[in-house]
Amino acid sequence: MNIEDIRKPENIVYRKPALLTDNIMHYCPGCSHGTVHKIVAEVIGEMGIQEKTIGICPVGCSVFAYNYIDIDWQEAAHGRAPALATATKRLCPDKYVFTYQGDGDLASIGTAEIIHACSRGENIVVIFINNGIYGMTGGQMAPTTLLGMKTSTTPYGRDAKLNGFPLKITEMLAALDGTAYITRQSVHTAPAARKAKNAIRKAFEYSDRNIGLSFVEIVSTCNSGWKLSPVAANKWMEENMFKEYPLGDIKDVLK
């Protein structure tokens, strides 16, 4: 068998999505953002909606998402992405509009914006990266930080009496009538990434059906912030994060 035989289309198991730019990613090796970006780029490409998609970046590590996916982007103030997306979708109802937000952005400073966007049933997609820590600013406690977890602002571990409890915002949002599809996924293995991709595709498809907001949480690793190797971070996530944040669909109004 020669190399040309191997390169046949039916043999291709991986290629860089066309909508992923050639810019060098600033994410740390092992970080989940790179995988989720790739999935989002694949979904937009496969649905053929590049010209109809507007993304809203958060403040946090993924503030630079606009450098990596080849679509029109708006960069929001910290936590406000759902407000931008609300107006964008209402003023351009034929477009696909999504926000991409971390746990500090969505579950702390932006709680009002996400809750009310969900409550109003905005026809947008929200991709929520939950790694239980503030990555960009150097590893401080997030609302989703686990009890006992050490961060730079909980150096002795998160103490419920001092710091409160991990916020299960995804379950909260599922209780709101304006949400259509709420799911929690991860991308730490190939099968998990495939499931996450199906979920993100479903969320984009639902956003075109006028049935309310679709929300995909990705439980993610921040191995730099967690001070673990990429492999150890994946293991730690499986053993600890998934207990607090179990994977699977939480709500689907079309089921």
Partner: peptide, 26 residues
């Protein structure tokens, strides 16, 4: 014309940001 009562002034101005980003008169 779209008219929307937001949950706060913080949200209203950021809706304006989103709408203005689309080249709309908001």
């Amino acid at each position: 014309m779209v008219v929307l009562q937001a949950e706060s002034e913080v949200s209203s101005i950021n809706m304006v940001y989103g709408g203005a980003s689309c080249g709309k008169k908001v």
